[in-house]
């Protein structure tokens, strides 16, 4: 691993010149301004807004005509028993397409967007190395992924509380836990799903370094996710399934068993870390050698 992390370079940065403000401070300011940029972009706000409509839509639909047992996507029929299942049903519905799409948009935009409007050069003029630029851009798109998932979950919890009962929660294993305990599990699900999307971010930011057309990077990332999901559904190529980015996404169900089955979650996390370990260095190498002309 040759990506130099900010903390490793800190001593040299502090001693480099007396007048220059500390690097970590610059990084933090840069990260904050990047976050403001990503979260303030109108397109991204619209994406989060659309995502937050889904729990309302699903909740209202189930409230008006309750699903019978086993019908529709997983967890849908459980919502009438407990509103918290709206969180899991919403995430199950959104995880195959809408969440990766939103994250593809944010991460595909990150580098290519700046290159496209000619601000990438300006960014590098201020004392920001390309490595830092990449890490900050990556961190911001992961935060955006978290905001997407958390918004869906939060809206789902609120709609669930308003429209449905909120007593003890029945887990997949048939055991019941109290609502606050289940809420903890929902939080773990939220973190797991965010981590699953961190892999999408890594692929997205790599593709974003390849082009100066942001829409191309977004489309390519979203398409790769769909290819991964289609491949995951072809039984003839089962041996490669464990290596697919999208394969462990739905393993969040393992958090809803009793006892929690950590094995599937662990392999899911490892898969994502492997994708990070491949695509972040690739993006770094590409950015280092890239001619930034605009």
């Amino acid at each position: 691993m040759s990506t130099s992390s900010p903390t490793m370079e800190l001593p040299s940065a502090v001693t480099s010149s007396a007048g220059e403000p500390r690097r970590s401070h610059v990084d933090l300011r840069f990260f904050r301004s990047e976050l403001r940029l990503v979260l303030g972009r109108r397109r991204n706000i619209a994406l989060v807004g659309v995502l937050s409509c889904f729990p309302i839509l699903i909740g209202t639909a189930v409230r008006l005509s309750p699903a019978s047992n086993g019908d529709g996507p997983p967890f849908l029929s459980d919502i009438t028993d407990n509103g918290l299942f709206l969180v899991f049903a919403s995430l199950t519905v959104l995880l195959p397409f809408f969440l990766p799409l939103a994250v593809s948009v944010a991460s595909g935009e990150s580098i290519a967007g700046e290159a496209n409007i000619g601000t990438l050069r300006n960014l590098l003029v201020v004392p920001v190395s390309r490595t830092r630029l990449l890490l900050v851009k990556y961190a911001a798109s992961v935060v955006f992924a978290f905001v997407c998932v958390a918004t869906v979950a939060l809206v789902a919890v609120i709609v669930g509380l308003l429209l449905f009962p909120h007593g003890d929660v029945t887990l997949l294993s048939g055991t019941t836990v109290s609502y606050p305990q289940a809420l903890w599990r929902a939080l773990l699900v939220l973190l797991y799903v965010t981590l699953m999307l961190a892999g999408v971010c890594a692929v997205g930011i790599f593709i974003s370094t390849l082009t100066e057309v942001p829409i191309g990077a977004m489309a390519a990332t979203a398409m790769l996710m769909i290819v991964s999901e289609i491949a995951d559904n072809i039984p003839q190529i089962a041996p490669i399934h464990p290596y697919l980015l999208s394969h462990p996404w739905l393993n969040f169900g393992d958090l809803l068993r009793s006892p929690i089955s950590w094995h599937g979650l662990q392999s899911g996390v490892l898969t994502q870390l492997a994708y990070l370990a491949i695509f972040l260095p690739l993006a770094w190498a590409r950015l280092q050698t890239k001619d930034i002309t605009s």
């Binding site: 997983p74 967890f75 199950t92 997949l172 294993s173 739905l250 169900g253 068993r257 089955s261």
Partner: peptide
């Protein structure tokens, strides 16, 4: 014995 599926379980 818990037969586990992605989002399902038979115990």
């Amino acid at each position: 014995i818990a037969l586990v599926g992605p989002l399902a379980e038979t115990d």
